[in-house]
């Protein structure tokens, strides 16, 4: 356990050491950003939209008891922006992107492709790890705001049919209820989630043991550990946000 923690520490330190010094693999970073976004977009769109509809529908009866259904846009918006969108995006990305990175790098390790890069005077860490971690760190926050937007549209569809509210009034109500801290917290949180998912996927793949079993194990560990860390970070982030609010 301690040895593993030491290895993780070394890996993260190596990331920052390599990240700070050029050259950078610009084309590979852009390709990875596209891959990360493209791989998750459909699932995130569906999940975000359905979550918006379901959350609005489930919240209505409780608010109706107090005659406060007009607060629905605010409630849906805050819930989506503060927690649901970052968490949903991160969990879907951990499943889709984290596993994919773990399997891809694991497979490259097993078939000696990483060694081949090294002996051909190319820094494989820079090409494979730095580019992927930058891609997840940049793309997942963008996907998070996209999820929030799609979720809001889902919520609006439900509100429109039940409360006959216009889209402008719905958005206005949402904008009135959110603060700068909500947006900042959500952005920082999703950057941390993105970094974590990329690092976990890369670490598991890059250090996978030899053999096909190792590739499967790397992909699986990337998802399980990635999701676990996202939940832990969510708890920490919530505590920090409340600290700043009070």
């Amino acid at each position: 356990m301690l040895l593993e923690l030491y290895r993780v520490h070394q890996f993260v330190m190596k990331f920052f050491k390599e990240f700070l010094f050029p050259p950078y693999e610009g084309k590979e970073i852009i390709r990875q950003c596209y891959q990360v976004g493209y791989r998750s977009l459909l699932l995130i769109s569906l999940t975000g939209f359905i979550t918006g509809i379901v959350f609005t529908k489930q919240s209505r009866p409780s608010l109706a008891e107090f005659g406060a259904t007009s607060w629905l846009p605010s409630l849906v918006g805050i819930a989506l922006l503060r927690t649901l969108a970052p968490l949903l995006t991160a969990l879907i990305s951990a499943g889709k992107v984290g596993s994919s990175i773990g399997a891809e790098l694991g497979s490259m390790k097993v078939t000696e492709q990483i060694d081949a890069m090294e002996v051909s005077a190319t820094n494989p860490f820079k090409f494979l790890v730095i580019s992927r971690v930058i891609a997840t760190t940049v793309t997942i926050p963008i996907l998070t705001f996209y999820t929030a937007l799609v979720g809001l549209i889902g919520g609006f569809v439900n509100v429109m049919f039940n409360e006959n509210t216009s889209f402008i009034a719905y958005i206005q109500s949402f904008l009135d209820s959110i603060t700068f801290l909500d947006i900042t917290a959500s952005t920082i949180k999703s950057i941390v989630f993105g970094f974590t998912i990329g690092m976990v996927g890369c670490y598991q793949g890059y250090n996978s043991s030899r053999g096909t079993e190792g590739v499967g194990k790397a992909a699986n560990s990337a998802v399980v550990i990635g999701m676990f860390l996202v939940f832990v970070e969510e708890i920490v982030a919530t505590q920090i946000t409340f600290f700043f609010k009070t």
Binding site: T111, E112, Q113, D115, A116, E118
Partner: peptide
Amino acid sequence: RLNVGFSFQNSALYD
């Protein structure tokens, strides 16, 4: 390494 080429047993082509 620019002066030392390595041909791998399984070729290790980037698939």
